[in-house]
Amino acid sequence: MKILKLPKNKLDFFASVVQQFGEVHAPVEQNGQFAFQPVRRWSEVRLDYNRTILPPKKYFLPPRETLLQYAGDAGYVPVMEGLDKKIVLFGVHACDVYGLNLLDLVFAGAYRDPYYQARRRNAAIIGIECTPDEHCFCRSMRADFVEQGFDLFLFDIGDYYFTLVGTALGDDMVLATGPLFEPVSHQDVEEYKRRSARKREAFRLHVEIRDLPEIFEMEYSSDIWQGLGERCLSCGSCSMVCPTCYCYEVADEVQLGSREGPRARTWDSCLFATHALVAGGENFRKTRPSRVKFRFYHKQRGFVAEYGRPGCVGCGRCIVACPVKIDVVEVLNQLRSVQNVASR
């Protein structure tokens, strides 16, 4: 992997150059929170953000989209407009890059999703190093550093951004800037290592994920699920904001007075009573505790069985977004801790 450095005071120039690779989207402030938005002025970009309300998944699996138009004789016509739009996501944190890598396993693996894939192909990703806050636990989830899934990744080393070049596209971006990027010195490497070690120390939340799937297996009947189910409002917030929640619903709309219309895809959540409801009225997860439990099981056990790692990147978004303070770290640690048998 090519490693270079970018002078910090030239960042805005660099950003103006990458515009030729697509519409630049970056985190901006929104009433005290952050959101990825198209950049109007570079000065409003907040690369010091903690987390965006929605993860970058919104660019690849939008909350709502039309998949196709159906009509009697014409049959099904896929709606592919806009999928080839080039964008550059500037300032993506490692956990969110990891999240996209996980979505790739789902949408670009055995079941290929042409909509997702097309958008993914047309987006460049420039990652940026971050400082964990009180809700971050990406390190526990092995998502605090990514080896792939970005075109460039920037690490703050003082006056420069230590830059990993991840792809040929990333290299093109570097070349497009002329002589802007400089080779790194031994000192820079030392500074990178120092900061990387400091970041490791900064994590305040920890979860041990070894044998977690097995513990889930053993605690299938734990009282924890009942309690969480009673608290959960089924508001769906945790799923909407989660970079790895990918459930969606597909439904046909119909144009008035016709038998044709669009087929639309909308985000869905396993916390909803309708999620496991099937024709005939049978519901596989009728009770709220069974649904909360399912969300945890899918991420920490099912996903591991299928893809060899948890379906959680430790971004902390669900912790921030839950109105009743259901906290994934708390739940996992509670599940792991030894409880007094007499009290169960």
Partner: peptide, 22 residues
Amino acid sequence: LFPQYPVCTECKMRENNCLLIE
């Protein structure tokens, strides 16, 4: 077919700030 889920879901889809939590 209308959504049965709560307003929060659409609120998050729009990436609004949360008035309740914030």
